[in-house]
Nucleic acid binder design. Structure first.
Lengths: 186, 186
DNA sequence: GTCATTTCTTACCAAATGTCAAGAGAAGTC
DNA sequence: GACTTCTCTTGACATTTGGTAAGAAATGAC
C-alpha cells in the first residue's frame, strides 16, 4: 500500500498509528480488463484507489457510450454522489486494463471520518481537488478547440495513448474517434 | 436569513441552537450590478449564499471573457479550491444584477466545521451536490449539441434569460453569442 | 427626452467537426 | 497460424458552429 500511503502523506500530516489504522480499512483487489468495478443502476458502496491500471467511467446515451473520465494510477475512483448519498448511480466503471486497486467500503469510510479526523481532512482535500480538476476540464471544454484539448491531453497524460483505446480518449475530450484519428495524423 | 435557513434544513436535521449559531456566522451584504465579489489573482476568503440576484464566474482567455457558471438565488458561490486551500484564485465573480448575499468568512467557516458537526455535514453535502451538478454539465458538454444544451437550459432555468445578458449564457454553454442568437430565432 | 454605450441580431462565408461507409490493422481465440 | 472480432484510419460529404462586419435594439447617463 506504499502508493496509497504516499498519496495520503502528501495531503495531510498524520501519525503512523492513524495512518496504519486508515490503511487497514482498505482491501486489495485485482480486476481484469473488461471487468466492472461498478455498474449503472447499482448503488455505489465503495471507492477505489488505483495502484496500477486504467479504469473508465462512462454512460450510454442513445446507444452510444460516452466516456466521462479515465482514472489512472495514483487516483481515486468512485461514483461520488451515489457513494455519498446512496442514490442510484448511473455511471459504469470498467477496467480498461488489468488493475490493482485498494478498495474502501462505504461503512469503513464513514467510520474513519468519525474516528480519524485526518481521514476527514484528507477526504475534504480529495473532494476539493477533484472538483478543481473537473472545473478545469469543463472550462477547457467551453472555450478550446478539439485540437487544443488533444494537445493538452497529449502533453499531460501521454501514457494514456499507449494503454487506452483511442475511442475512449476521443469521447472524453468530446469528439468522435474519426476526428481524433485526423488530429493524430497532423 | 429565511432562505439560508431553509437551505440548511433541507440538507440536515439540526437543533435550533446550532442552527442559530451557524446563521450568526453569516453577514448580510448587498452588492450592486457590476460589482465584484471576487477578483482574479486574489485569495478567496469568503463564500456567499445568494438570497437574490445573479452572479457570474468568469475568466479571461486571450482577451475573451469565458463565463463558467451563473449563480442564482438559493445557491452558494465561491472559488472553491482557493477558499479551501488559500491558493491563488483565477476566477472573477461579478454581480450581473443587484444582489443580496449572506457571506461567511473562511475563519468562521472552518471554526464552524470544528464546533458544529452539522455544519461539516452540510458542507460535505454541498460539495457533493456541487460536484454532481458540474459533472452533469460536463457530461452534457461532451455529447450534446448547442441546440440541446440551449433547450435544456431554457427548460431548467428560464428566468436566466430574463435577467442575464445572453452573451454570458452563450459562453456558459460553450457557444458564441451569435450562435445563441441563431438558436433563439428558431 | 436625447445621446452614447452596450447588447443583440442578421447575413455572408470560412473552418471545424460529424456522419457514413469501406477497408486496413491489431488483438484475442481456438 | 488462421479466423474472428474489435479498433483505427481514410475519403467524401453534410452539418454545425465560428468569424467578421454591419445595423438594430435595448439600456444607461445626463
Amino acid at each position: 500500500m506504499e502508493a496509497l500511503k504516499k498519496c495520503i502523506l502528501k495531503q495531510v500530516s498524520i501519525n503512523l498509528i492513524s495512518l496504519e489504522n486508515i490503511l487497514s480499512a482498505f482491501e486489495c483487489a485485482e480486476i481484469k480488463k473488461g471487468d466492472y468495478f461498478l455498474r449503472s443502476g447499482d448503488l455505489c458502496r465503495k471507492m477505489a484507489f488505483i495502484q496500477t491500471g486504467y479504469l473508465r467511467m462512462y454512460d450510454t446515451v442513445q446507444g452510444k457510450e460516452i466516456t466521462f473520465w479515465i482514472g489512472s494510477s495514483g487516483r481515486f475512483i468512485t461514483s461520488l454522489s451515489s457513494f455519498v448519498f446512496q442514490t442510484r448511480n448511473f455511471w459504469n466503471i470498467e477496467a480498461v486494463t488489468d488493475c490493482k486497486l485498494y478498495v474502501i467500503g462505504r461503512e469503513n469510510h464513514f467510520h474513519l471520518c468519525k474516528t480519524e479526523p485526518k481521514w476527514l481532512e484528507f477526504d475534504n482535500a480529495l473532494l476539493a481537488h477533484s472538483f478543481a480538476l473537473l472545473e478545469r476540464s469543463m472550462f477547457a471544454q467551453l472555450h478550446t478547440t478539439a485540437r487544443q484539448r488533444f494537445d493538452t491531453l497529449m502533453a499531460e497524460e501521454p501514457e494514456l495513448f499507449h494503454y487506452v483505446p483511442l475511442q475512449y480518449i476521443a469521447s472524453m475530450i468530446g469528439i468522435t474517434p474519426e476526428s481524433l484519428s485526423r488530429l493524430r495524423k497532423n
